[in-house]
Computed example of a mutant assay.
Amino acid sequence: MSDNARRFCFASGPVRGEWVNLSESFHTVIRQHRYPPEKAHVLGELLCVAVLLTSTMKFEGEMTVQLETTGAISTLVAKCSHEFRIRGFMDWNREASPEAVEQSFDQGKLVVTVKGADNTILYQSMVPLEGCRVSAALEHYFVQSEQVPTRFWLVVSETQVVGLMLQRLPMKAGESAEQAEHLWEEVCHLTETVKPEELSTWDLETLIKKMYAEHDVELFESRKVWFGCTCSVERMEQAVFTLEPVESKLLMEQGGTVDVTCQYCGKSYGFDAIALKRIFAKQAKKNKKAK
């Protein structure tokens, strides 16, 4: 199965599903950072969730799902654009045990941010972490901030990440609350019966036939998911000036160089004294115009 996302809906009531499979894009992220298996597992789950949530966006922009904890994994970030371009990274204690990684989710916060095409923040919500799995943290997030009943099923193997999300949507005029609740409970129960190995190996058509045989389910077109980084010389020049202005200026005066590495793709950018002078001159010109 290629990297893709796909939506499905139930004709009998207000329940929507999103399904995603990541293989090549997932491995691209992992290879660039050489994450060990237990860390790769967690990042794979969050990348999958970012795609699932992006599938619900109705405008151009980018979804960011970020975990900040006081445990072995201090920061974990996954991003997905409306074009389904994904990227992600994590900061962690390299000496931490797999058990410590699991316990990272006991304390901290989950932040979901949506930016528009012009990079302005359209929505941001933050909730405390509860539970030691990404799926548990996300379900708690929806209970606390969205008030939309949402369930996640995530499976990560050495070769791929597969995720399924169900959401109970607001009822339309004329729909029965009792029937909607019954459908939601039934669909969630049926999904719980699927084994992890089945979720990771069956395509969506097979899953739907096996899980929801008694229901009329509408499948939507598949959308390709791909890895893509947005780093550039211009962005890294801004990082040099913004993050390390004093140190960079000192190195410029001493004829030294500054090396900046992209957190997402691992690409390194080097700026010698001449480049640093150009960066500071450009910024000084911008500041003068701003006045």
Rank of each mutant, 00 (worst) to 15 (best):
M211H: 01
F10L: 10
S81N: 14
E18H: 14
L46R: 00
I86P: 00
L164E: 00
H182C: 07
D106I: 08
T206I: 07
K195R: 13
L251P: 04
T54C: 11
T69H: 11
F59E: 06
D3W: 02
C188A: 08
K109E: 07
V161N: 11
K277P: 06
T201F: 01
I30Y: 00
L204R: 00
F271G: 02
G270K: 14
V233S: 05
F241S: 04
F26A: 03
C80W: 03
S135K: 12
E38M: 11
H41A: 15
C80R: 01
E237C: 06
E218D: 09
F241K: 02
M171C: 06
E95S: 15
V20H: 04
M126N: 12
F8I: 08
F59N: 07
S157M: 12
A50I: 06
L129Y: 04
E175W: 06
L46F: 09
L122A: 15
M63K: 13
N93C: 12
T70Y: 13
Q32Y: 06
M1P: 00
Y35I: 06
E253R: 15
A290K: 11
K172D: 10
E178L: 10
Q179K: 11
H189C: 06
Y269S: 07
C229T: 03
L22H: 09
L154Y: 05
C188F: 03
W153L: 07
C188S: 13
T75N: 10
A78P: 04
M171R: 04
L138M: 15
E95V: 11
R85A: 05
K195D: 14
E102D: 15
Y269E: 12
T230C: 12
I121V: 12
E192W: 09
Q160Y: 10
P14N: 06
V42R: 03
E253Y: 14
E192L: 10
R94T: 07
S55H: 03
A72E: 05
G266A: 15
T113A: 07
K289I: 15
L110H: 10
K286A: 10
M90F: 04
H182D: 09
F84K: 01
V114S: 13
C9A: 15
K286W: 08
R34K: 15
A213D: 13
T150H: 06
E95P: 02
P37H: 09
D106H: 15
E221W: 05
V42P: 00
R34G: 13
L76G: 00
K115V: 11
H41C: 08
C132F: 09
K285P: 00
F227K: 00
K39W: 02
M165P: 04
C48H: 03
L138R: 04
I121N: 04
V51Q: 06
E38Y: 15
K288G: 09
V112W: 00
K209R: 15
L219R: 07
P149A: 13
Q179E: 14
I274Q: 14
